[in-house]
Simulated scan of single mutants.
Amino acid sequence: MRRGLRVVLTLVVAAGVVSSCAGSGGRTSPLTGLPAPAGAPVLAVKVDNSPAGRPWTGVEDADVVYVEPVEGGTTQLLAVFSSRLPPAVGPVRSARESDVTVLAAYGRPALAFSGSAPELAGTLAGASLVPVTPGTAEGAFRREAGRRAPVNLYADPSALLAAAGGASPPRDIGFRFGATPSGGEVVRHRDVVFGSAELGLSWDAVRGRWLVEPGGGDPAVPATGGEPIGASTVLVQRVTTRPSAIRDAAGAVSPYAVTTGEGAAEVLRDGRAYPARWSRPAPTDPTVVLGPDRLPVAFAPGPVWVLLVPEG
C-alpha cells in the first residue's frame, strides 16, 4: 500500500502539480492554493447574473465562482467564500437543484439564497448543507433602495455564517495548483456561450487574471468600484443537462447541470488553454481534471471560476 501511494505521489510531483492541501497544515486553501485562515467555514451564495442584477457586490472576494445554466438559456452565479468575506454580497437569488450536487463535494457548507421552488424544498432539507434564507436569518439580509425586486436583496456574509452555525471548513474538491504546465495553446480571449447567455474572458498579463466580461461586454467591475473581477484559472467544464421538476414563475423549466460522471474540459491559465477531461464518480467526490497525459492539470494559485457549459 505504501509503495503504491509513493508511486502516485511521484507521478503527481513529476508533473509539476502540487496538491493544494499537501504540507499546508491547514494554512493553504484547497480552493485557491493560497494562504488562508485555518478552519474558516465555507459560505456559498447564489448571485444574480442578469443585466439588471449587475454590477455584482462581493463576488470579487470569492474563492470559487460557478456559472450555472438556469431557465431560458440564462445563467446564475454560485459564489463560494472562505478565505475572505466581503462586507456584502448580492443580488442574492434562489437556489437550484444543481447547487446541491455541486456543493456536496464541499462537506457541509452554508448556502445562502433568497428562496426556492416548492419542489426543491425536500432536496434542500436532505442535503449536506446549511441553508440560510431571509426566512431563517432575516437580520442577515436587506433590501437595497433604488433597485427593484428580485435584484434588490443583499446579505452580510459574516451574519450569514453566524446564523448558519456549524458550516464546515474547506476540503479537497479536486483542484491542484502548481507551475504553468508545458504546452497549451496561446489564448488571449474566449467567448463561452450558455444558450442565450454569453460570458467573455480576456487575459490580462499585467494583473495575471482572466477578466470576466458578462454578456460579452466590458470587464465586470464590483459595484463598489476597484479592479476588474477576474480569475487566476478558469475551468470550462462541459456538462450534460436534463430538465428538472422545477419551473420558474413564467413556467420555464429549470435545467439540472449534471456534474457527476465525466466530460470534456478546458483549463485557462497564464494566457494559455489546456485541453482536459473532468471526472467525478459521485457528488461527494472531488472533481478530477486530467490532461491528455492522464496527469492532473495544474491550476494557477488564486481565485477559480468554473463554467458549467451545456454540451451541444
Rank of each mutant, 00 (worst) to 15 (best):
A104L: 04
G58T: 08
E119H: 00
V193Y: 04
D270C: 08
A121Y: 00
I173D: 03
T260Y: 02
V258Y: 01
P69V: 11
S20I: 02
L78K: 07
P30I: 08
V102H: 01
S244M: 11
S24C: 13
T28N: 10
A179H: 07
G72N: 14
K46F: 06
G165H: 05
G26H: 07
L5Q: 15
T240S: 14
G146P: 12
L307Y: 12
S196M: 02
A231C: 09
T224S: 14
T180A: 12
R6Y: 09
T32L: 01
G263A: 05
R247F: 00
G26W: 04
W210M: 05
A127C: 00
P37Y: 04
G217Q: 08
T10R: 12
G183C: 05
A155G: 09
V186M: 00
P301Y: 00
V193M: 03
L290G: 01
P292C: 02
F81Y: 15
A44I: 08
L77C: 02
G73R: 05
L211S: 13
V151G: 00
V130T: 08
R277I: 09
V186C: 00
L34I: 06
A62Q: 12
P219I: 11
G16C: 09
E185P: 00
A137K: 03
Y66E: 04
Y66S: 08
A220Q: 14
I246S: 06
R96V: 11
I173M: 11
W278T: 09
G251R: 00
G23H: 11
A95D: 15
A110C: 09
R27W: 10
P281G: 15
V221K: 05
S83M: 08
T123V: 14
G122W: 00
T233Y: 13
P169R: 05
A14H: 11
R84L: 12
F141L: 04
V193R: 09
A145Y: 07
Q76G: 04
P150G: 10
T284D: 12
S158Q: 13
V187W: 01
E60N: 01
L160S: 02
T10W: 10
S83I: 10
M1I: 12
G291T: 05
G216T: 15
A265N: 13
R143G: 10
S114C: 04
L31H: 07
L235D: 15
L295T: 14
R190L: 09
V267Q: 03
Q76I: 12
Y106W: 04
G39Q: 07
